[in-house]
Nucleic acid binder design. Sequence first.
DNA 1: ATCACATTGTGAATTTATTCACAACTATAT
DNA 2: ATATAGTTGTGAATAAATTCACAATGTGAT
Lengths: 207, 207
Amino acid sequence: MIPIPEKTIERMSRYRRVLNNLLEEGRKHIYSHELASLSSGTPAQVRRDLMIIGHSGSPRNGYEIKLLRNDINELMDDPEGQKIALTGIGYLGRAIMNYFMGRRPKLTIAAAFDIDPEKINRVISGCRCYHTDQLEEIIRKENITIGIITTPAAGAQKIVDTYVKTGIKAIVNWAPTILHVPEGVFLETRDITMSIEKAAFFAKTNK
Amino acid sequence: MIPIPEKTIERMSRYRRVLNNLLEEGRKHIYSHELASLSSGTPAQVRRDLMIIGHSGSPRNGYEIKLLRNDINELMDDPEGQKIALTGIGYLGRAIMNYFMGRRPKLTIAAAFDIDPEKINRVISGCRCYHTDQLEEIIRKENITIGIITTPAAGAQKIVDTYVKTGIKAIVNWAPTILHVPEGVFLETRDITMSIEKAAFFAKTNK
DNA sequence: ATCACATTGTGAATTTATTCACAACTATAT
DNA sequence: ATATAGTTGTGAATAAATTCACAATGTGAT
């Protein structure tokens, strides 16, 4: 089977959010052009994506929202649940903890880490906080498989290395630096400065 | 002239950071393969990117770091400077303000906005904070051309509409929702949940 | 001077992503 | 029953991004 493109996965996450909102409003069906406009895409793209994940609709009624949402859940969620470690309990780390807490039953931030004694052994946004020295121990004990990095740039590579050592296979990095992982580990860096600089470039160009 | 691809602009931001670090270390020259490995790319990609922005090196010494950095500055920076408005002074907004403050002389967060009276009329991370009601007034007065959104999802579209109304041409959105802007306005949504869900999908798939 | 060699610059090829365009379909109206 | 209209599903076309591959180059060694 052909692997599902990363871009399609990204859009699935967006579709799911839209669909959940529609379900709350009591909507039952949706056409590709509606889902497209609600998720800033094109109808053809939506149909192609749903084809890729093997979901089909009906020519007259479009897609049944609940079924589609369930198919996306099945694609994206691990039925056993997945746990996340977050290292760096600064403003950014807290923003993510806050936002995530209790929102996804199948995907929870199970532990947060920092080196500041003020934060250690507290519970912040419902999440237990540990000293970074305990990373390995806790990740193994809790069976954590996803790592988030919200530390300053300086210490980030060391955290990644520890993540990798414990067997974590997917990392999202918000530290403003380029990190290196071995083959087979998924790493995505979400560079805040970069996105603002890019916007600035377009603001300048469209002036 | 062909427009510079968005992806190339993103990489320029990364290259610049790497180059600035190297300059501080006193390095003078760099080869495409070195810059590639320092920025998680390929040598061919680096050469292609530099070709696109019209920078050239020498076969034996590679690229002169200072010249290359200056060419990137010239490409990315507006010599007159550019000002940014940020709306939503929560953890995420503060993380961005904190990180950005004083780091880019040509790109500054000139004003922050919120509806919480606790935050209004204070100076946070060196940045003056106003009530969201004053968005239009301040943006025009300060000649702000870039907008950041770090509010909850609910109010975000209204903020975007105000940004657009004041003539802002580039917006970066961190609110977990899809936003709509008219043709000609650059909008990039950086969806935190989406990036974590994507990582979770890969963690599950690589298990 | 000349040579040797690792690198640049880039046209061409390839891969990946998106969009087009239309046959096939299905719920509804007649 | 049959026609209709607006949709889906998808092969084919197109566009965008990346990588290949190699001639041209320029520097230091001899």
